[in-house]
Design a protein around this nucleic acid. Sequence first.
DNA 1: TTGAAAGCGGTACCAC
DNA 2: GTGGTACCGCTTTCAA
Lengths: 345, 345
Amino acid sequence: MASIKDIAKALGLSVSTVSLALNDKPRVSKETRDLVKAKAKELKYVKSGIAADLQRKRTNLILFIVNDASRSFFSTIINHLQRATSAFGYDFLICTTYGNHNATAERFIKEHRADAIIIYTSTVADDLIIENAREDFPIVVLGREVTGDYVYCYNYSNTQEPLSTTEYMISQGLRKIAFVKGSSASLGTSRTFNKYKKSLEDHQIPLNQNWIFDAGGSSYRHGYEITEKMIPIISEIDAIQYSTDDIAIGGMLCLKEHGIHIPEDISIAGKGNIPESNFISPSLTTSGATKEAYLFYEGLVHYLILMIEKSDEYAAISMQLAHFLSHFNSEEQLIIRESVKKSVF
Amino acid sequence: MASIKDIAKALGLSVSTVSLALNDKPRVSKETRDLVKAKAKELKYVKSGIAADLQRKRTNLILFIVNDASRSFFSTIINHLQRATSAFGYDFLICTTYGNHNATAERFIKEHRADAIIIYTSTVADDLIIENAREDFPIVVLGREVTGDYVYCYNYSNTQEPLSTTEYMISQGLRKIAFVKGSSASLGTSRTFNKYKKSLEDHQIPLNQNWIFDAGGSSYRHGYEITEKMIPIISEIDAIQYSTDDIAIGGMLCLKEHGIHIPEDISIAGKGNIPESNFISPSLTTSGATKEAYLFYEGLVHYLILMIEKSDEYAAISMQLAHFLSHFNSEEQLIIRESVKKSVF
DNA sequence: TTGAAAGCGGTACCAC
DNA sequence: GTGGTACCGCTTTCAA
């Protein structure tokens, strides 16, 4: 493999000149620059990004770790993050831990193979995060609570939701409402669960522990499987509040396969308003963000990059950014569709 | 940041000993190893993966470049690739080019920031691929045709499909069948299109150019948007053959929103058998692979790694592997569901 | 405008 | 079993 040394040697130049020329630094004359580039092409030179990284002590990379990149929920976030990182000239890569494959995630965290890491999965252990976060290696954790130096944890709350899906179901005369938790470690699940409990409480409906289920995960499959287990008690209940749309959709498929009609036999509500919730039939009553969440992700990436680069701007606006991020609120909206039986009154 | 030099100095050892100890090489005594590790922890030492990469001239990384990781089609492939790379002790990362963000993909290709690259998108230019593939930097291209040294291009053909979805629709008495192309650069689209044309031909049905549409992409949205444009001519036709399930599902939503009933008013067929095709209502008639495609992806990763490592095994079995890969055939099966109107005869 | 040289933080060879 | 040291390929300061 040809290196800048080879180019330098072939041209009787020094490596520094070659380096400067290749990087279009103004200090080399146009002639030598052209000469160098021609030789580089001739020798099939390829730059070693790694060597450059080592010297510059910067990878230019922000890594996003997630369990399953195919979930619509994450694909939106990925788009936002990518747009933002790319706007700042940084690289953006995704690391998936689906199926317990966390070796890569671990190695990238342990060996500082990125400038910053954003984690949105519970599959990466708290310890690993806390022990590896540094001033020059900030780790952002979303969707769960992790406390440590240089770990930045944001879980913007959805306090502005006017009416929860559970409340809506109650308003439609449904009272025996089961709850299905997704990944139990996730904050999203516990939030929806809290709202569920609060809605019951507000309407003096006692909580029935036998109607609380745990899907153990957030994919269609998890929803399908837990719902299968619920079949024996389906006739006892009026409705199911799933903690996310994904598991709700899996659950609906299961119910359909068992000849149970939605919403005639049972009402279903989800949470998140993922695109699929509108595609399926019956379409899913759910709730979701209205305010553009991209503002949050843009701010987050901006904050990280200012931090990494220790820029002057950082000192100036980091406080505001930090405040913006921790107080970010996504207004949520109830989205009434077909999966909840409408009251006849 | 503490480095091995700092540990060596603090302990009065040499860097080589420290390095060996940290990597659990047998040549250091257990005592010094423990000593070194304790000191490492004390100094909050973190290994620089990049420095190690530079010296070892290997990144241990296989990068998968795709436009949109959220498409079910790719998520299956991603799972297969990840399982395989992880089994070989390699890291696996995903680079997304969605929304024309190909800076990262370019940099990783140009600067050899991985040991091998697998590309399944048309958003990366042929030239870039051809110019950068090397013996020690193989590039695999899927889903399209690129020829060059050290670029390995596989597009396993689905020759064994017994009956195309288009043919099935014809068999149900439908004759006025429109076709919607997805990403027009993709081989998948052109294959489905060829089958569509052949099926019409076989049944002496003339091809109507006004019924051929191009969605310009492969997402739900693309399917939705092109179908919206087709609304004025919907009454002229019996059926729509979409080139992929994704756009078919987007199209179905659009039709539903316009009060057009499936399959009463129009029949729909897709291609690919993605999980969602079974969830939606009416469920989508499509065709998909039956033979386990993971065999292909496992073989592919194995091949790449043998190549990268220039192992002896490589010489021995590379021919067979290459043959296996280029002759891999995924048997396809017609999956009849609800979206095509059944013949009353 | 160009060159010399000092590293970045490891690995691995060779000597002891 | 441990130490000395030459790199890996690039960036960057300093000197010419």
